[in-house]
């Protein structure tokens, strides 16, 4: 019975950001996910149940995947009594900041670019629907596996989940993922020269076209840096691309 409740709470956490808002961000998602536990604990006293539920409507924001660890921790604390539940909620604000930073770096800057870059590389290698299957399964195998694991660790170990996540050395894993991303981007750039029919018949022409394409990437990168991370404008992108294409056609 207890396992069912835990699973229900986890499933509810999959719509964590359904009502994300600027006022209190993910607070409704937190209250919605933990409600089955509160309902079980305070079913006999609806007024108290409402009061305990309202306590979760405080400003809360973290990485939506790592929120599972905090949710597990809160379930662990709330199950041990009201006083512990209050302490857990007070601590969850700090945990939200910590996991927001760790989760954003790992998922948004590490896993997502890596899987996407690999999928695009596969597309330029051989366009097929397998690319989509790869993108969906590879990402969710890691994402759902990690999400459920940290939830269960939070559930059973409480605040000890911090130690568990620390043991996984996620910053190192992220560095490896960045390396894989860069390698797949380089291969993608190489394949794109052929895909967009820039490639010439001779090896020298092919090399020239690749250099021109890499120079184009470098120019876009410099433009982006100049704009403090903003994308270069469309009316700058197209003439630059046009120039490279023209040069490639000339050197064919």
């Amino acid at each position: 019975m207890k396992l069912q409740l835990e699973q229900r709470i986890f499933l509810r956490s999959l719509c964590w950001q359904a009502s994300w808002n600027f006022a209190r961000m993910q607070c409704l998602g937190l209250a919605y996910a933990i409600y089955p536990l509160l309902e079980k604990l305070y079913a006999k006293n609806p007024e108290h149940l409402a009061q305990r539920s309202r306590r979760y409507l405080v400003c809360f924001n973290t990485n939506p995947y790592f929120a599972a660890a905090i949710l597990g921790f809160l379930v662990h604390m709330e199950s041990q009594g009201e006083e512990m539940g209050d302490q857990g909620l007070a601590l969850s604000g700090s945990l939200a900041g910590l996991y927001g930073a760790v989760g954003d770096a790992f998922f948004w800057n590490g896993l997502k670019p890596m899987v996407s870059a690999l999928a695009v590389m596969l597309f330029f290698l051989k366009p097929s629907l397998w690319v989509l299957i790869f993108l969906f399964t590879a990402y969710n195998f890691i994402h759902l596996g990690l999400r459920y694991t940290i939830y269960v660790h939070g559930l059973h170990r409480g605040i000890g989940v911090i130690e568990t996540i620390n043991h996984w050395r996620l910053p190192l894993v992220r560095n490896i993922m960045e390396f894989v991303t860069t390698v797949s981007l380089a291969v993608t750039a190489f394949l794109m020269v052929d895909f967009f029919a820039l490639s010439g018949t001779t090896a020298a022409a092919h090399a020239t076209h690749l250099f021109l394409f890499l120079a184009l990437i470098g120019w876009f990168g410099w433009q982006r840096k100049k704009r403090d991370g903003g994308q270069p404008r469309l009316w700058e992108v197209l003439p630059a691309g046009g120039l490279v294409v023209l040069l490639c056609l000339l050197f064919k």
């Binding site: 991303t181 750039a189 895909f195 967009f196 029919a197 994308q231 270069p232 992108v237 691309g241 294409v245």
Partner: peptide, 21 residues
Amino acid sequence: LTDRLLLVFPAVGIAGLLCKM
């Protein structure tokens, strides 16, 4: 030119991602 010009979009993406890392 038009069929080849599409390459500027992935190129901007690659440049952006390299800058981010």
